[in-house]
Design a protein around this nucleic acid. Structure first.
Lengths: 331, 331
DNA sequence: CTGAAAGCGCTTACAG
DNA sequence: CTGAAAGCGCTTACAG
């Protein structure tokens, strides 16, 4: 690969000049410009992004830290979210470095990446990475709230307490008396928040709430097995599934069990791929988390923070319960 | 941000030594190691990935060029494909730089990116980027064949002629007499290839094939409008939809038109999201392109090529027609 | 086991 | 409008 030096020599100019004809940061006479361009073409010279980044300390790349399980495909939620950040970034000329590598807790392996800022999905409790980004002064925005809460960090989140509460309310108002909550795994703040919201709704109702947490593994399988194993011993009137894929598994179990939805059992999913939810039969009642919006708002905020490192801001994205066909109204 | 120089000075060693402590490329005494680490921690030093990349000429990042429309979400095909490359890359410690930016045809804006190689989805006809990557000696693998054909470039592809042919055969064998082919837009090699395969199947059959090409815009809308506008004037017995989203649109039109599937009209989709295809009603007969496999094989090949720039290799991924419920068998 | 120095390929004041 | 030189933050022979 030819370097800026090669073309400078062959064109008989300084590398500063070559640099300028490519960057247009200072005016160069047309004759020199043409000569340089001709030589560049002849030598197949292309500017080196890395060297440039090192010099100007900016890459026009945004890092997206998103833990994707090795075994399963991305969920609809993740896909939409990625979509949101890509779209927003691409609008402003940024590209996205997808980082799904398992995190080293060892700070020695923490390097400052070739990015101008990072978006981090689902920070863990006490996530050490948050402090590290602070130390390296890398602009950071979380999707999902930091735990413990820290108002000096930027984040975008749903109000998951509210979501849990709302779904609980809805079910109660429609006469449900016994529900099964198939929650996310317990290390996620969303799981805790939704559970809390739901509890508040049920607290004084006297109704029964069964509870289960996802351990690991295939979400569809989780939904399937949970229902299959426990339905006969309980009289659920409704089940709340952590995601649409969990709901899909549950749906399958109901078919095999001969349970008819929503007459004998209602299902609501908490995270929803709008196109999938409309194609299931019955169509899935679900709460729309607006994953795409979470993503694009996170990107917007990050890009703002990259321009102006000082700002700290949080934003909660509204979620709404979309009534479709999988829930029975008892009243 | 502290640099390697700062810690070297404060620890009273050379930067080569600091470098070695972090990279472990040459042995450093434990006492020096500890001192350096302590200082690094105190100064919040983190190695700079960019500087390192410049020095060693390697980034452990793979570029993925994938044109994603600004308006619509990624298709299931794209999602699975991305999944495949991410998974494979992440296994080997590589990260993925997602580049959805519109390509400048202007070679001036072509820079050598901070990547060790690139995967390019759907190269255009006469794609000038292919030559440019050759010139910059960046390992490249295409997903979709180069057009015109060039056996010196690495690529992974389905056999789209065969796919078109197979679907045509299947429809013919089942007694279909008039079909509508809702093809992809004409600038894609897949469109030409599938059309050719289909033609070959229909050639001597005496059956009618109506043909339409996607212009742009929403695929679901394309399927919806195409069917809605033309069904009354023709007697299609089957329609072939370029993707499952096109099929979804067509399905919607059939509902509004009161056409019952598959009794009055059969539908087969050419690109398929397995989970979606199973949730539609009726379940969609479709050909599985194995997008995830296309992605992971492309990544495998690229990683191989990064190790050994010399190799050139092509691979065709088998597609299979999955019979579900949306096609009637007339015989 | 460690250091001094050149080098990776750019950019950018400073000077003219 | 252009050049010479320092600098961005690392790595790596070479020498000891």
């Amino acid at each position: 690969m030819a370097t800026i030096n090669d073309v400078a020599k062959m064109a008989g100019v300084s590398k500063g000049t070559v640099s300028s004809v490519f960057s247009k940061k200072r005016p160069i006479s047309t004759e020199v410009t043409e000569r340089v361009l001709a030589v560049a073409k002849e030598l197949s010279y292309f500017p080196n992004h890395i060297a440039r980044s090192l010099a100007i300390k900016k890459t026009m790349i945004v890092g997206l830290k998103i833990p994707i399980s090795r075994e399963h495909a991305m969920s609809g939620f993740e896909v939409q979210l990625i979509n949101g950040v890509i779209r927003e970034c691409s609008k402003r000329g940024y590209r996205v470095l997808l980082d799904t590598l398992p995190e080293h807790d060892d700070p020695i392996h923490f390097a400052v990446d070739p990015v101008d800022g990072v978006i981090m999905l689902n920070p863990r409790t006490q996530d050490p990475r948050i402090d590290r980004y602070k130390l390296m002064q890398t602009p950071l925005v979380l999707i999902g709230r930091p735990d413990p809460m820290d108002e000096t960090v930027c984040y975008i989140d749903n109000d998951n307490v509210k979501i849990g509460n709302q779904v609980g309310q809805y079910l109660l108002e429609n006469g449900h008396t016994s529900i099964l909550f198939l929650n996310a795994s317990s290390d996620m703040t969303v799981a805790a928040d939704r559970k809390r919201g739901l509890y508040v709704a049920f607290e004084s109702s006297g109704k029964v709430m069964h509870y289960s947490r996802k351990q690991h593994g295939n979400p569809t399988h989780y939904g399937y097995v949970s229902l299959k194993n426990s339905y006969s011993n309980h009289d659920y009137t409704a089940i709340i599934a952590d995601t649409d894929r969990v709901a899909l598994g549950a749906l399958q179990a109901t078919r095999e069990l001969g349970i008819v939805i929503p007459e004998q059992l209602s299902i609501v999913a908490l995270s929803d791929d709008p196109v999938l939810a409309q194609e299931t039969s019955p169509k899935l009642t679900s709460v729309e988390l607006s994953a795409e919006l979470l993503g694009s708002e996170a990107a917007k905020l990050l890009l703002k923070k990259i321009k102006n490192i000082g700002i700290v801001q949080q934003k909660v994205i509204d979620a709404k319960l979309i009534l479709r066909e999988s829930c029975k109204m008892y009243v």
